[in-house]
Design a protein around this nucleic acid. Structure first.
Lengths: 349, 349
DNA sequence: CTGAAAGCGCTTACAG
DNA sequence: CTGAAAGCGCTTACAG
């Protein structure tokens, strides 16, 4: 009961050597159909399960599992991707004795993404962890990986691709609903909301749109008949806010209640409100960016929603390892929890 | 660089056999002082680190790590402890190939806790996971464990004990502050709050008191000068609410705003409010108890705070394993995040 | 098509 | 006090 059955017992039961059992287990050639089937039957009967620890101990030296990670380049104004990387590295450390090797590649735009993708496909990796920012390039990469039977898991964002794939990311629609719940809780059942997509030259990200949709759905579902208006603007990060007459109007509207920033740039809002003498406006944003946390502490932002980026990276590596060693993909599709952060649980004491 | 140094290399460098290296690594007797020191020096120089995977593969068959778990008995009206147990079992499954054996013991009161504690100490376990509900009995058990050099980690609650110990639990004071932040966000800066400790015959739990203290501290710190009053009652679960004149008064008070229930019994509140025709009162409670989630879905409870009980159990086993195999206690002291749950992120879609 | 041997890094008797 | 051998469960050349 306690001691699980091993390759040795299987061999004895089948009257063969352990080498032959191993050949069957790995579907390698060179076994007669009869013995193969006999062994298969015994494996099924006994419920044999490979001992991953023993297997990896053996292979750790000679055949490491090679995983390529292709993520955005960290720059001074976009440090977010340090966090998934941190989680990836934690997983790598935990698995270091199991024979794992992770190589990082970075991109800045569709072109460099495609180029790096090709480089990765040239080297024979066992798996790929990346990000689905560019639909055409992703489909291209995914189809190549499919052909080579290389599993791919996408982080951060979910988009519709030509082939089914694994995604570890927050459900952005749901996150938008949570944001609406929080903002609505703060301001009550009537008022004018303001959704701000602060966009860079990368344009409007799929996550931003999904979050806005969720935000709007919350009100459409729960408060259809209330006097609630939601205005959206796509504000380029490098242009002054006040230049936009819509924004000016919203600032002067006494019914203005709350602002939902669909990405991590919410820390820009408090200063703008102050400059324009706008008070009593609640703000909800995303990500535990340093400046966002600072605003949270000063109570200039009310809530932040965390996408748990370290956790995403960590789970991707752990889940991929489990898939590669046990053919179990169950950890490769994950809805990361929508974590709500306020001043008192933001981690800094 | 890539291939880490192993016991074999150490042996070669020291001109001894691997057996002798092993003896030094495990501080076993039978090595001359000179060789011992030579080997120690080489270990230090090379930064040798034991390969846990190889070590456990070897020992999994003959010397399993035995961990005793002593937790409250699950009953029909207190199912909470199923959850830490679930996390424990998940960890046990993940570590099954590493040679681990967990035995469960249950208590219902101080007497059975002490008795089970003695039973556990009689059998030689490698570690103990339990719960610090009864101070005297815990100190007793902890001192015995100390004498036997058996590490102990406590879940769920932190209390002051005679010896330092490991705790994996939510910071209840902080959780109370979070609850206050949420309730305050909903009701604004003025009003009368109501803290309800719904107590059973087990009496007021340390967590409840700590949560109430945190709740009060939030208002004392942030809104000292505002017209905020906080009333606390300890309501026995088996007695009707309305019988208490204080509660009657609070119900009739137009300034009443929010109720903070310091444990998982918040699901009792909505029905009481309804019976007494009390509306527009916000409710914050604890734990993802089935009935609480039901109230959350019906928007009768606004926020729940989750203590992540599965995570606590999981972390206890994983952390204890790491401690036993690598002498690394870093995962045995943990502030579990104060997780905020609303209807939209409660997990059920 | 199949088996026997060597080995992954560590641990444990056993022999001297 | 020290070493050589056997073994944990699996994997890989190599021999036949």
């Amino acid at each position: 009961m306690d001691d699980l059955i091993g390759i040795k017992q299987i061999a004895k039961l089948a009257n063969v050597s352990i080498g032959t059992v191993d050949r069957v287990l790995h579907n390698r050639a060179g076994v007669s159909k009869a013995t193969r089937e006999k062994i298969r039957a015994i494996i099924k009967e006994t419920g044999y399960k490979k001992n991953t620890v023993a297997s990896r101990l053996n292979l750790a030296g000679r055949k490491k599992l090679k995983i390529a990670v292709l993520i955005p380049e960290v720059s001074s104004n976009w440090t977010y991707w340090e966090l998934p990387k941190k989680g990836i590295q934690k997983a790598v450390e935990e698995l270091s004795e199991m024979g794992i090797l992770v190589s990082y590649y970075y991109f800045t735009d569709p072109l460099s993404f495609a180029k790096m993708g090709d480089t990765i496909m040239d080297i024979k990796y066992d798996a790929l962890v990346t990000v689905p920012f560019f639909m055409a390039e992703c489909n291209n990469l995914l189809s190549k990986a499919k052909a080579e039977k290389i599993p791919v898991v996408f982080l951060d964002t979910e988009i519709q691709l030509d082939f089914p794939a694994y995604f570890i990311r927050q459900n952005s629609h749901k996150a938008g609903m949570v944001a609406a719940r929080l903002l609505h809780g703060l301001v009550g059942t009537e008022g004018r909301y303001f959704v701000i997509n602060i966009v860079t030259d990368r344009g409007l990200h799929a996550n931003n749109q999904q979050r806005e949709n969720g935000f709007r759905e919350f009100f459409a579902t729960n408060f259809k008949d209330r006097a609630i208006s939601i205005m959206t603007i796509n504000q380029p990060i490098d242009r002054p806010f006040e230049i936009n007459p819509e924004i000016e109007n919203w600032f002067r509207d006494p019914g203005r209640k709350g602002i939902f920033v669909t990405n991590a740039r919410s820390y820009l809002i408090p200063a703008i409100l102050k400059t324009n003498n706008v008070s009593n406006v609640s703000v909800v944003g995303f990500d535990l960016h340093h400046d966002n946390l600072e605003c949270l502490r000063k109570q200039e932002i009310d809530f932040l929603i965390n996408q748990k980026p370290e956790f995403q990276g960590y789970t991707a590596i752990k889940g991929m390892f489990k898939f590669l060693t046990e053919q179990d993909p169950s950890d490769l599709n994950m809805d990361v929890p929508v974590e709500i952060i306020v001043k008192e649980n933001c981690g800094a004491d």
